[in-house]
């Protein structure tokens, strides 16, 4: 299974392609491609977004679903989805923690 990751042009924020071809800021909202055809659709949407100068560094990322949640296979992509492992107070993980606490 794969999802499509990129960085947003304006601020570099890591984003994933979500439902309705919208770029979302949390990996949980990423659209999961379960077959080749769906992957190709993701790639095409990524190419279009690159050409439209919305994002850069568009890449397909291997994932598993664990308890229904998206879990990238590579540590690199897991860190990208959360933030620096040394700074739980920074990046997306901090925002998620704040939301959970709220």
């Amino acid at each position: 299974m794969k999802i499509l990751a990129a960085n947003r042009l304006t601020d570099g924020e890591t984003v994933w392609l979500g439902a309705g071809d919208r770029w979302v800021e949390t990996i949980d909202a990423a659209h999961v491609a379960r077959d080749k055809e769906a992957e190709e659709r993701l790639s095409a949407a990524g190419d279009a977004a690159l050409a439209a100068n919305l994002v850069l560094d568009v890449t397909l990322v291997d994932i598993d679903l664990s308890d229904g949640r998206v879990l990238p296979s590579r540590l690199r992509e897991r860190i990208r989805a959360g933030g620096p492992s040394i700074h739980p107070d920074l990046g997306k993980q901090a925002r998620n923690a704040a939301q959970h606490a709220a």
């Binding site: 960085n7 924020e13 560094d57 690199r76 860190i79 990208r80």
Partner: peptide, 15 residues
């Protein structure tokens, strides 16, 4: 190439 000449990289979480 222009941004690199001016020290702007892209990393995992941001520029």
């Amino acid at each position: 190439p222009l941004r690199l000449m001016n020290g702007v990289y892209l990393q995992l979480h941001a520029y």
